[in-house]
Design a protein around this nucleic acid. Structure first.
Lengths: 165, 165
DNA sequence: CTGGTAAAGTCAACATAGCTGACATAAAAA
DNA sequence: TTTTTATGTCAGCTATGTTGACTTTACCAG
């Protein structure tokens, strides 16, 4: 009674299912950020610091502009965060080699230590969820989330920086 | 080479897969909130207003305390949002019938209209993602997100208010 | 009836993290 | 040489969270 052209059932597309999916995102995201948030508070940092630290760790040597386009905030906003991380000795900013206007960002040893603590906590919860759900559910999870991203942002998710241009 | 006790392959639990899952959550959540955020800005509201509107729509007559425990913010913070919604005539607050200390919250016609615009936009993206991913992926998506929630919050997700006690 | 507790609301003060706009400097590119 | 780009900064504003203190109203147990 609710079959599409291919004959598949489309019951999973009802408004009620979609609402449930929306709330799943809302409540799961709360769990997703809870553990890192607790650690960040101990260090006097916020979620914005976490994001900067995460992406510098993932792409060492990334430029400020690249980070801006990943995070989607203004440079004034990012700069405030970056400045404290540099002052506190968690991030190092080196003048670009090819283009001396650019700054290449790196985590210091201290920065890597905090990154490790944060992502250990976040991965622990994710690992438990993945394990309980099983590999097929995890594949579906990834598929749906990927389909939900903006194409613009999807770029940053798919490829991890083609540094050689 | 990475099989567990049951013989299943556990390759989906590597740190690299978990990192990818973490970034999937990050980027997908941005897409998830983008469309409603755009509409909210037009109306001069923020994400906090959206959350209040959503849960009042879902559970008409819900009390302030219940909303507080769902949203996990302080009453001062929620009150600021709720006050503007009431002043603007989107939410109605009625004295409780059984317990006159309580306030039961409802969306007005105007509130329902905004709720509709917001959830239409959010559902449109979710529907597209669901359709592209297919029913099995959607089931996996839900399973993983549910496993990622805090048990405390999970309560609010699972059951929609047993009003009769 | 009284005293305690619970629900809601308020005031004040503060922090984080976003925003706009204007401007400065250095370096690359035209 | 002029223009553009990458970065950084100052000032001020907004949204949304926080603590702490206090009030009013109403329920409830003694």
């Amino acid at each position: 009674m609710a079959d599409g052209p291919g004959g598949e059932t489309l019951l999973f597309l009802t408004d009620e299912h979609l609402r449930k999916g929306i709330e799943a995102m809302f409540f799961a995201y709360r769990g997703f950020t809870k553990d890192p948030d607790r650690i960040l508070t101990e260090y006097g940092y916020g979620r914005a610091h976490h994001r900067a630290i995460h992406f510098i760790h993932r792409s060492p040597g990334t430029t400020v502009n690249n980070l801006l386009s990943i995070l989607g905030v203004t440079k004034q906003s990012l700069n405030r965060v970056l400045r404290t991380l540099i002052e506190d000795g968690l991030v190092e900013s080196r003048v670009g080699y090819r283009d001396r206007r650019e700054r290449n960002l790196f985590l210091t040893e201290k920065g890597e230590a905090l990154e490790g603590a944060l992502s250990d906590a976040q991965r622990a919860r994710m690992r438990l969820a993945f394990r309980n759900a099983g590999p097929e559910a995890v594949a579906g999870f990834r598929t749906v989330l990927e389909a939900m991203m903006d194409p613009e942002l999807r770029r940053h998710y798919d490829g991890v920086a083609e540094r050689g241009q």
